[in-house]
């Protein structure tokens, strides 16, 4: 199938297929929402082009040798070159009888291989299609499962609400306690659902298997608490328990206890002042302010 598009940047059919497997999608280049329909084949106004297409179609049918059919890259390249020559001649009506004779000779010599490659191609296409079908089914299965879970979740929430109302009407237990219990139950169920949803895919998907396979490639390493070159001048000062610090006197007294309750730590302010001062010791005096003779 030939693909021409106003979106010049899409050319390769497999890319387009991949892009639209889940329906309309934004073009990765220009971000316009596109539909696969926009890529239906078009007929060419330019007859020259149309002719070239026809010729190439015809040639591709029989000149279908693969790289593995050749002993080396060189002979494969020679073959490709010959195919190009023949194609060129046919398109431009050059030496038609001789060219047709070359094609006929090729056909005779390679009849078996041509047939084999046609079969290989068909088999490959079949395989590809089966794979795509399987993947589509898997996707549909997942989507259905998610929908089911969401529906269940909705019903459950509704049920909970109703139960709570019923209980509040009939029970003489403390209302806040009932609400609390109902919420705790709801949270537990929501969480169970989320993890169950994830786990239900676990078996059906290849995810865990691929994770296991990855393990042999990138091994997990033991934990290292800090990984940067941590240095905070800690060898250069000792933080005392207390300082003569009028600015923080009120804070330290903290008559109401509210700074303590809020977690404010005057020690953090002290540590910061100390560390900043010590870090400053390392800063060289500015260049250019040199004393005579140095």
């Amino acid at each position: 199938m030939v693909i021409l598009s106003r979106h010049d940047h899409h050319r390769c059919e497999s890319c387009i297929d991949r892009l639209f497997t889940l329906g309309p999608a934004p073009c990765p280049v220009c971000n316009k929402i596109l539909r696969k329909l926009a890529f239906t084949p078009q007929t060419f106004e330019d007859l020259e082009v149309e002719k070239e297409v026809a010729v190439r179609r015809r040639i591709a049918k029989e000149f279908n040798k693969r790289m593995e059919d050749f002993p080396d890259l060189r002979s494969y390249n020679d073959y490709l070159e010959e195919v190009e020559d023949i194609t060129f001649n046919l398109i431009h009506d050059i030496e038609i009888p001789e060219t047709e004779a070359r094609i006929a000779a090729y056909r005779r010599e390679n009849a078996a291989l041509i047939e084999l490659n046609i079969q290989r191609e068909e088999q490959y296409n079949r395989l590809l299609k089966e794979q795509e079908d399987a993947e589509r089914q898997e996707r549909e299965h997942r989507a259905a499962e998610l929908r089911r879970l969401e529906e269940e979740e909705r019903e459950e929430r509704e049920k909970e609400r109703q139960e709570l109302i019923d209980k509040l009407e009939t029970s003489d237990k403390d209302a806040t306690r009932l609400v609390a219990k109902s919420r705790a139950d709801a949270l537990r169920r929501a969480s169970a659902r989320s993890t169950a949803a994830a786990n239900s895919f676990q078996s059906s998907s290849k995810l865990l298997r691929s994770r296991a396979a990855q393990n042999t490639i990138v091994p997990d390493a033991p934990h290292v608490p800090l990984q940067d070159d941590w240095y905070a001048y800690e060898d250069m000062y000792i933080l005392r328990d207390n300082y003569e610090d009028p600015a923080s006197e009120a804070v330290r007294r903290d008559r109401e206890g509210i700074m303590k309750a809020g977690g404010y730590r005057v020690e953090e302010a002290w540590e910061r002042a100390l560390r900043s001062a010590i870090a400053g010791l390392e800063i060289m005096p500015a260049e250019g302010i040199r004393t005579v003779g140095s």
Binding site: H9, R11, R66, V83, T87, Y124
Partner: peptide, 22 residues
Amino acid sequence: LDEVDGNVDLSGLGPGVKANPP
């Protein structure tokens, strides 16, 4: 998405001609 200008790619042994259309 842009096609890669190709000389023969030895690693692309997949579907033969299909991957390396003439």
